[in-house]
Design a protein around this nucleic acid. Structure first.
Length: 431
RNA sequence: UCCGCGAUAGCUCAAUGGUGGAGCAUUCGGCUGUUAACCGAAGGGUUGCAGGUUCGAGCCCUGCUCGCGGAGCCA
């Protein structure tokens, strides 16, 4: 069976066609009934006149509840009064599965109710638009790296120890080998990949058992992490800004319809082109002080600090050279100032916060061993990682980009839970 | 873990300490161009749970449960 989809109706004007989908909404006015069909690609108003169809079909059109799955038949015509600009002069209607009392009505609902019904909420226009944009972003990410000679290399999800030693991890029993943990980052494995393949990226789910309870946190989220041998911090920033430009401009080019559904003001997204501003941590601290924020040098930025800093710019801003103490053990120190790490965070505009975190990695065996000791990490778990420095160590850099934060920013969402099909949060692991 | 807010019909919300209501959804009736259609009618309640104050508690007090927002931490 050759399916015809609502998005392709312009090629079928005047034809008698059959469409399948779900009953999105209906209205009636005596001898005329309007059924809005939803098929995942758009909405189509189907008009049933009492005189044009059998009494059985007319009665069926009256009886069917929201989200009944149906097959409609009729002639396509352009109709400016109808949603989507087209309309079906319906001649027939078949029910595939009758539905009644669909919980999500075309009225307001609360967040808790919608999240309890997430499996059904995904059918709404807004959620469909978000999922399509998420998919386009994922594809843009893959295209970007694939077209630049990167190799996708999947890291393990079950790991024997923490990658960064700071976050709280989900724990599980692993047969006779003791405890295993769900990964919080594929980065250390990406470094092994970069030494093998030159340019690699990982892309997969990561897990944090932190009891974070904000609109910017999920316990399970997707992260893409490129890692490049022989790249220094500046090369890393070059890559990050080119990457962000490509993602945003691709979505702007291909997903205008969806952005319109979301009522996203895209003027600020259009600015996302290189070069992105690059400021040092010290300069960022100056910005905070000028804005009357009592900030102590040496701390990491909080959510409101990030918003104040990013509000100074019309596009994402890169903040580099953070105090080493607030950053992970594997980051290389700045040769100009041992207190600083060669790290870079990218802060998204409009209060969306950190979407990228990266650094040049420590490539000296002795220094890395010392850092592991300082951070009280078990060196035995990192012997394989230290081997990367024992056998042909080179300068290398990489970063991680949080997928849901990027989706949330580009879509203009007010909470990360809408940026992923089934959000996992501290107080929710269903549906 | 800490701070703040909340929980009333299937859903979204009203109700001065004094007989718990409306809109939507559902059911029935009306309407040949509706746009979250409209008009008329009906059904629908252990006011999150447990105690307390009071002649009387949805409302005041205490504890608990669940959720929302924020902080910390981070992408």
């Amino acid at each position: 069976m050759q399916n015809i989809y609502i998005k392709d109706l312009s090629q079928h004007i005047g034809e008698e066609i059959t469409l399948t989908g779900w009953l999105y909404n209906k209205r009636s006015s005596g001898k005329i009934k309007f059924i809005i069909l939803r098929d995942g690609t758009g909405l189509l108003q189907c008009v049933y006149f009492k005189g044009n169809v059998t009494p059985e079909v007319f009665e069926l059109a009256d009886r069917l509840g929201q989200e009944s799955s149906i097959e409609v038949k009729g002639k396509v015509k352009a109709e400016p009064r109808a949603v989507g600009g087209y309309e079906l002069d319906a001649t027939d209607l078949h029910v595939i599965s009758e539905a009644h009392d669909y919980p999500i009505t075309p009225k307001d609902h609360g967040v808790e109710f919608l999240m309890d019904n997430r499996h059904l909420w995904l059918r709404s226009s807004r959620q469909v638009a978000i999922m399509r944009i998420r998919h386009r972003i994922v594809k843009a990410i893959r295209d970007f790296f694939d077209n630049r000679g990167f190799t996708l290399m999947d890291p393990p999800i079950l790991t024997p120890a923490a990658c960064e030693g700071t976050s709280t991890l989900f724990e599980t029993e692993y047969f006779d080998l003791g405890k295993a943990y769900l990964t919080q980052s594929g980065q250390l494995y990406a470094e092994a990949g970069a030494m093998a393949l030159g340019k690699v990226y990982t892309f997969g789910p990561t897990f944090r058992a932190e009891k974070s309870k904000t609109r910017r946190h999920l316990t399970e989220f997707w992260m893409v992490e490129p890692e490049v041998a022989f790249n220094d911090l500046n090369d890393n920033m070059d890559l990050a800004e080119e990457f962000l430009e490509y993602i945003v401009q691709t979505v702007l080019k291909d997903k205008q319809e969806e952005l319109k559904v979301l009522e996203r003001d895209t003027t600020k997204l259009e600015n996302v082109k290189k070069p992105l501003p690059r400021i040092s941590y010290d300069e960022a601290v100056e910005i905070l002080k000028k804005n009357g924020i009592d900030f102590q040098w040496g701390n990491d930025f909080g959510g409101t600090d990030e918003t104040v800093i990013s509000n100074q710019f019309d596009r994402p801003v890169m903040v580099h050279r953070y105090p080493a103490e607030v950053k992970a053990f594997y980051m290389k120190r700045d040769p100009q100032n041992e207190k600083l790490a060669l790290a870079v965070d990218v802060l998204a505009p409009e209060g969306y916060g950190e979407i990228i975190g990266g650094s040049q990695r420590e490539d000296s065996l002795e220094l890395l061993q010392a850092r592991i000791k300082e951070h009280n990490l078990p060196q035995s778990a990192f012997e394989w990682y230290l081997d990367l420095r024992r056998f042909g160590s080179v300068p290398h850099s990489g970063f991680g980009l949080g997928l849901e934060r990027t989706v949330s920013w580009i879509c203009g969402l007010d909470h990360l839970r809408e940026a992923i099909p089934f959000a996992r949060m501290i107080y929710r692991n269903t549906p």
